[in-house]
């Protein structure tokens, strides 16, 4: 069986005179949880909608599990969390999920059980008999996630799975996604790069409708040879001079004004290096609230977007 689950070739989409996507060619391999990111207007939603078959490409081709996104052969093998789709009114959540499960080939009682199972996964079992009108935005989001978890899909496409969720629910959803990523391939779009960093092995960055990069998250965040500090205030202007005496420090990058953030890069595997850097900070009278090994994906991607 092919190890490629998604393949696009020179994929383009225009809306009237507006070019939303231009010449995207990439592959997503089986079992690799992949994040799709980019600033507003980068073409994320368009690209995602093309993968899902919601939109038709203006040019180029898409292959999902070796088939066209419209192909009957992939029905039930691909699950989708669309970002802005609304449930039917006047029908209970449980009934609606059961109906969707029936369309995946389950009989009535199996569909009923499947609806219960996925609602439990998103902590909404008690809402089985409630109408969509009675649920909050966050709860509706969880129902939408629940429908994407039904059956045994080979590929799950999630558009902003944690947007609008409180931190506890967001963590619970991330845990479910993490578990599922062991069984199938997942593609996630999100503005929250911490989610991408947490869950994804690879990241696709779109910029102005074009493919900016497609690489491993670990390569982007340089996990082993950088320290990211959250400071009490913005780092001083002479921050590079402060680290000049530490030969292993190769670069220091200050965050934008008001971010109170700083990344120190080094080229030494010695565990004492981190202590030396912290000592240097203390000697300069710079206090920090938080230190993380590696560079935050948020900073790297933001940097790239500014370039």
């Amino acid at each position: 069986m092919s190890s490629v689950v998604i393949q696009t070739n020179q994929l383009s989409k225009t809306f009237g005179a507006t070019k939303a996507l231009t010449g995207i060619s990439l592959t997503v391999e089986k079992g690799v949880t992949t994040g799709l990111v980019g600033p507003n207007g980068a073409g994320k939603t368009t690209f995602f909608s093309l993968l899902c078959g919601f939109l038709k490409p203006s040019n180029g081709t898409i292959s999902i599990l070796g088939h066209n996104p419209d192909s009957a052969a992939i029905r039930g093998k691909v699950s989708i969390l669309p970002q802005d789709a609304a449930l039917l009114k006047s029908l209970s959540i449980g009934k609606q999920l059961s109906m969707l499960a029936e369309l995946q080939g389950l009989n009535k009682s199996q569909a009923h059980e499947e609806a219960k199972r996925v609602l439990k996964l998103v902590n909404l079992y008690e809402s089985f008999n409630q109408m969509p009108e009675q649920l909050s935005h966050g709860m509706l989001k969880r129902v939408a996630i629940a429908q994407a978890l039904m059956g045994s899909p080979e590929l799950i496409l999630l558009d902003e799975p944690t947007a609008g969720l409180d931190p506890n629910t967001s963590d619970a959803i991330k845990s479910v996604i993490r578990q599922l990523s062991r069984q199938c391939t997942i593609v996630i779009t999100s503005h929250n790069l911490e989610v991408i960093e947490d869950l994804c092995e690879k990241i696709i960055i779109l910029k102005k409708g074009e493919l900016h990069s497609h690489e491993k998250v670990a390569d982007l965040t340089a996990r082993t040879k950088a320290l990211t500090f959250k400071l009490d205030q913005d780092p001083p202007e002479n921050i590079k001079a402060i680290f000049k005496e530490l030969a292993m420090v190769t670069d220091v990058k200050a965050g934008q004004t008001g971010q109170h953030r700083m990344v120190v890069y080094f080229n030494d595997e010695n565990p004492m290096t981190e202590i030396e850097i912290i000592k240097c900070l203390a000697e300069a009278g710079i206090s920090y609230r938080e230190m993380v090994r590696g560079e935050r994906l948020q900073d790297t991607v933001s940097d790239r977007m500014r370039r």
Partner: peptide
């Protein structure tokens, strides 16, 4: 209009 079809199309052909 409500994009409910987006819940259906992964399961059914158009």
């Amino acid at each position: 209009g409500s994009k409910y079809l987006r819940f259906l199309t992964p399961r059914c052909n158009r």
